[in-house]
Design a protein around this nucleic acid. Structure first.
Length: 663
DNA sequence: CACCTATACGTTTTT
DNA sequence: CGTATAGGTG
């Protein structure tokens, strides 16, 4: 039989160690895989899925795989397809958010939600909150939209709702804002990222028949990066899995780096409680890094008190020493790193895509970007401003979102006067007041603007022509492919001229981004000729920066340590290693757990490297154009000295580490 | 209402 | 330093 042949082939091509084999072949019941860094975790998951299908005859569509990024999901899908020699588009391997979105689109009616709801991103969320705070006349000093947004997010990830009793006036007002925010979204048929998870869990708890339907559908569940799941994600997993208990979770508590987003390794314990009879398999064989890297990473992480004892066995030779460089200024650091990269590529056998630069915070990318440009090194920055967050892209998307959902007030507000149509803030506020008082949507208010007091005839005319524009282009959506429609829309709205006027200097790059958007739509149309507006908007709103990245491209990669999770490179530079930057000053507090999370982040960074690690810092840090003296990161002192070479490139304070020089 | 200028303010990490 | 907002003028 073909099935047996596949199995033999699978194991021959890429042999698995006994623990990996056990994890792959384990069929029914709860399974907890503790997978150390570089222990072949992805291989185990993909083999396991392939094995369930190929060996146990499980139907592809009864498997649910949950990952953290779309990229990890599609990679996994491809690898499974390769193992089984067939196209597999019927396995659901997606992110939590994407799976929940799928469910909600279908089941929305059960929780009194129209199925065409739109998704608000972080920027939209902030602007909604800002409006609410402004209207409530609260002090913006204390009530800053970003902070409140984070707080709301935290509440929601714990299934906390505004109905809960609260004491202090501050909390009361926070809840008031929260409640208004929730009402606003309800009124405008919007959901934020947290809602996707929260509403799905709510739906499962309320509608048992719906829950049963999905329990029946997904007989086998796998969750990747389990250490970074939060309460609500755990609930989702538990609800779906507790009946058949075929739930496999994979993670590494040493790589838990999202506690600030509500993630908790506590879920490992909850899993063990909620799924009795579970099996634990530990993957401790590291196939990625040299022994020196492994020993250094182990030495660092062993400073954490809160961790269960776990070992990593290396499979490679000792390899190079780790390197530690000290500089005067950030720009010296950037200059060195880039020259060293040139050296690695031209004098040694490395390619650009073997190399990555990691930093703690996004703003550190700037000096390295400048140096890359100066030396003509091809680079990509992962993170920072994402493609779908760029102004021009968001404008176009706002038009599309409004066409998909007329109630979407955020999008309407964004583009009602872009390009400028003479509908300014005063008019907009009148319209909003009218909409609010008469309990209609903002778009409805536009339709009846002649009834609104204080809106002059000429302005009514302007509003009418805007409404006509939206209505008439909406008609054309039916007759055009989406990519053609977007081109048409840009034409009809006069958006290109607007961009040119708005900023001639930036026009070229913005137009480039728009072409890229259209190209992206075309590519998706190629895969799925029936690609609709809603479908595309969905994918666009859940896309992350890492998803845009192609590891095959001949470029070096710059990213935050958080973005580095799950990746590997031959050479890794970890830069900006000053106390206060890394560990970040906000996590240098009384709470030792915050520091431990920073340390895990360092551990993640170190364990991404296969062959070589450079760490570096400068004694003068440029911050807001100020020069701030800074100390070497305390984490660097945790690296074992006998596996480290120290290079003092600094002309200031030479005395300090000169005795460590030994190369 | 649109446009220009002054000033305040901020950068942790992100699905 | 760069961006985002406020405040004033045409």
């Amino acid at each position: 039989m073909g099935i047996t042949f596949q199995r033999i082939e699978m194991f021959k091509q890429n042999e698995l160690n006994p623990q990996q084999k056990e994890a792959v072949e384990y069929k029914d019941g709860p399974l907890l895989i503790m997978a150390g860094a570089g222990s072949g975790k992805t291989r185990v998951i993909t083999y396991r899925i392939a094995y369930l299908i190929g060996e146990y005859g499980i139907k592809p569509w009864s498997i649910l795989g949950v990952t953290f990024t779309n990229k990890a999901a599609s990679e996994m899908q491809q690898r499974v397809a390769r193992l089984l020699h067939r196209k597999i588009n019927d396995i659901m391997i997606r992110t939590f958010h994407s799976v929940c979105l799928r469910i909600l689109r279908i089941e929305a009616a059960h929780i009194k939600l129209p199925s065409h709801f739109t998704i608000v991103d972080e920027e939209d969320k902030k602007s909604i909150l800002k409006n609410i705070i402004d209207e409530s006349e609260m002090d913006r000093e204390i009530y800053n939209p970003k902070k409140i947004g984070e707080q709301i997010s935290r509440w929601k990830s714990y299934e906390f709702t505004p109905e809960i009793e609260i004491q202090s006036t501050y909390e009361k007002e926070m809840f008031e804002i929260y409640r208004n925010y929730e009402n606003y979204k309800k009124r405008t048929d919007c959901l934020d990222f947290d809602d996707l998870l929260l509403k799905t869990v709510e739906l499962f708890k309320k509608e048992k028949t719906v829950l049963e339907k999905y329990r029946k559908k997904w007989q086998y569940i796998l969750v990747d990066e389990f250490q970074d799941t939060n309460h609500i994600q755990y609930e989702f997993t538990r609800l779906l899995g507790e009946k058949h208990t075929n739930v496999c979770v994979v993670g590494d508590e040493d790589q838990s780096i999202y506690s600030w987003r509500g993630a908790t390794p506590e879920n490992f314990f909850r899993f063990q409680k909620d799924f009795p009879g579970f099996k634990i398999i530990k993957l401790e064989q590291n196939y990625r890094s040299t022994q020196n890297i492994l020993d250094s990473a182990t030495a660092v992480i062993s400073n954490n008190i809160k961790r269960s004892d776990k070992k990593l066995w290396g499979t490679k030779g000792k390899g190079d020493y780790l390197r530690l460089y000290k500089f005067d200024q950030s720009r010296d650091e950037a200059e060195f790193v880039i020259r060293e990269i040139l050296n690695l590529v031209h004098r040694q056998d490395y390619q650009y895509n073997d190399i990555a630069i990691f930093y703690r915070t996004n703003y550190l990318s700037r000096s390295f970007e400048i140096s890359c440009k100066g030396y003509h090194i091809p680079y990509v920055i992962i993170g920072g401003v994402r493609f779908f967050e760029r102004k021009e892209i968001k404008d176009i998307l706002a038009y599309l979102k409004l066409i998909a959902n007329r109630e979407d007030e955020v999008s309407l507000q964004r583009i009602i006067n872009i390009p400028s149509r003479g509908i300014g803030t005063t008019t907009l506020n009148r319209l909003k007041d009218y909409a609010f008082e008469n309990k209609v949507s903002l778009f409805k208010a536009l339709l009846t603007s002649n009834k609104i007091e204080g809106v002059k005839k000429n302005i009514q005319e302007k509003i009418r022509s805007f409404v006509d524009l939206i209505q008439s282009i909406s008609q054309d959506l039916k007759n055009l492919k989406l990519s053609e429609f977007v081109l048409f829309l840009i034409e009809e709205t006069g958006y290109a001229d607007y961009l040119k006027n708005f900023s001639p200097e930036e026009f070229e790059s913005r137009r480039g981004n728009i072409s890229e958007l259209i190209q992206d739509i075309r590519e998706r149309e190629k895969k799925d000729p029936s690609l609709g507006l809603e479908n595309y908007l969905e994918e666009a709103s859940l896309q992350t920066s890492i998803d845009e990245w192609d590891s095959q491209d001949q470029t070096i990669s710059l990213m935050t340590l958080h973005n580095a999770k799950g990746l590997e490179f031959k050479v890794v530079f970890i830069v900006g290693m000053q106390d206060g930057v890394f560990p970040h000053h906000r996590n240098l507090n009384e709470d030792p757990e915050d520091l431990e999370e920073e340390r895990r982040l360092f551990y993640v960074g170190l364990t991404r490297a296969r062959e070589r690690i450079y760490t570096s810092y400068s004694v003068i840090r440029n911050f807001f154009q100020q020069n701030i003296p800074s100390e070497m990161s305390r984490f660097l002192e945790e690296l074992p000295e006998d596996k480290l070479e120290f290079f003092d490139q600094s002309t200031l304070g030479k005395h300090s580490y000169s005795t460590m020089r030994f190369y």
